[in-house]
Structure formats: structure tokens, C-alpha cells
């Protein structure tokens, strides 16, 4: 029989998983999705939001938060990338209209991290884990097209994606990528964008002290 601590872990899992499956903006919706009492939902979502494990978007809908994302990346040794990945993925999605993602490749498995859903590939649902054929060693500035196989899909079908490398550690490689539409159009433009985004992430480097950024001499568009 589960003890108090096992039950707490199960509740934690339910609370942190729930926003992945449904749009939840009210205590009633959250309680229905998790099966937890409404009063517990109010108390726990409040504290999880404070810790950054949950977040809310412009409509008040719950999302997994930045701290959850960071813990996930830490577990694979990529915690330092957690702050810089989301803005780059959003910009990639805006420019390409394709779903952009961060991924971690280990033993012919691709673990999807943060992702931003683009309209061109909105029909392709994103799974957390895919099988892939061997990922070739990527040289600087190179993006390659690979096929993903969803192990949970009945027919084994997956998607075509374009990926480029960010960093590698022993058997583990960090990549960013774009889901490709069935038409496969505009591939060269997407490759260029992806490589440019990867350069941006790689350039992030070590945190700087305040005031170390260079002053702009002309109008700064940002």
C-alpha cells in the first residue's frame, strides 16, 4: 500500500502532467483532469506556480513552468541551456511557421524538450520520445533531415525533422530542430534559419556581469 510519501509523489506527478493533456485555467478543470479535490488543487497549483514548476500564459491557461523545464534539462546535463532555449525556439517558429524543438539524442532515441507549435506542422502532434536511425556526426553549420518513429504509434509512423547540433557530451547530444511539413517545401531556407538559431544558442556562453554588453552606436532596433 502506498505510504504518505508515495501518495505525495503521485499527486505531484498528476499536477505536473495535467497541463500537457488539456487546457486548464480554472480549479474545476484542474480538479477534473487530476482527480484531486478542488481545495488541494488551489493550494498546490499556487505553490507550484510560485516555484516556477507551473506557469500561466496570457489567457491564464496553465503550462509547465521554466523550473520544470530546467530540472528536465539538468537531469541530462544541459541545465545551463534552459534559459536561452525558449526564446530561440519561439523565434524559429515565428519565422518558419514550423514546430521548433529542443532535443536530446541518446542511444538512437530522441527525447523532445521544449517545443513551440507552428501552424505549418500543427497537425503533427509532438511526442516526448522518438526512435531514430543513427544520427550522423554533425559538423558546424550543418543541418540534416532525419525520420522519427513514434514508438507509441500503432503504425510506427512518425515525422520528418531537420536538426542541427548544439553540443555533445559522451553519448548524449543536444540538438534543435524543426518539424517538416509533408510537402517538404522551403528546405534550404529552413536549414539556414536553424543553423542561425543554433549559433545564437552556442554564443550564449557564461553569464556576464551587469554592464558588460557593448553600447550600440546607432539606433538599437531592440
Amino acid at each position: 500500500m502506498a505510504d504518505t510519501y508515495d501518495r505525495a509523489v503521485q499527486q505531484f506527478e498528476a499536477l505536473i502532467e495535467a497541463p500537457l493533456h488539456a487546457r486548464l485555467a480554472t480549479p474545476a478543470e484542474y480538479a477534473k483532469e487530476t482527480g484531486l479535490p478542488r481545495s488541494s488543487v488551489i493550494r498546490h497549483t499556487s505553490s507550484l506556480e510560485e516555484m516556477g514548476l507551473l506557469d500561466r500564459d496570457e489567457k491564464g491557461t496553465f503550462l509547465r513552468g521554466a523550473t520544470a523545464h530546467k530540472i528536465g534539462l539538468k537531469s541530462q546535463g544541459w541545465g545551463a541551456l534552459s534559459a536561452v532555449i525558449p526564446p530561440v525556439l519561439r523565434q524559429l517558429r515565428h519565422r518558419s511557421q514550423n514546430t521548433s524543438f529542443f532535443g536530446m539524442v541518446a542511444q538512437r532515441m530522441l527525447h523532445i524538450g521544449a517545443f513551440s507549435t507552428g501552424r505549418e506542422t500543427r497537425g503533427n502532434s509532438v511526442a516526448s520520445l522518438y526512435q531514430i536511425d543513427r544520427l550522423p556526426k554533425l559538423s558546424v553549420g550543418e543541418a540534416v533531415q532525419i525520420a522519427l518513429i513514434d514508438p507509441n504509434s500503432d503504425d510506427g509512423r512518425g515525422s520528418q525533422v531537420l536538426v542541427t547540433g548544439l553540443a555533445s557530451e559522451e553519448q548524449n547530444q543536444a540538438v534543435i530542430g524543426l518539424m517538416l511539413p509533408a510537402s517538404g517545401s522551403g528546405l534550404s531556407g529552413l536549414q539556414e534559419m536553424l543553423v542561425s538559431a543554433a549559433e545564437m544558442v552556442k554564443a550564449s556562453g557564461q553569464p556576464e556581469k551587469v554592464g558588460q554588453s557593448s553600447k550600440s552606436s546607432s539606433f538599437d532596433p531592440f
Partner: peptide, 19 residues
């Protein structure tokens, strides 16, 4: 150290699911 279940937290949609 953090285990496999924690690795699954990396799976983070940046937008709420659009049903």
C-alpha cells in the same frame, strides 16, 4: 541524482495545447 522521470520534465510545450 535526477532520474529518468525527471528527464521527462524537459518535455515542455511553450504554448497551451490547442485542442
Amino acid at each position: 541524482r535526477l532520474g529518468q522521470k525527471a528527464a521527462e520534465l524537459a518535455f515542455t510545450p511553450l504554448e497551451a495545447p490547442s485542442v
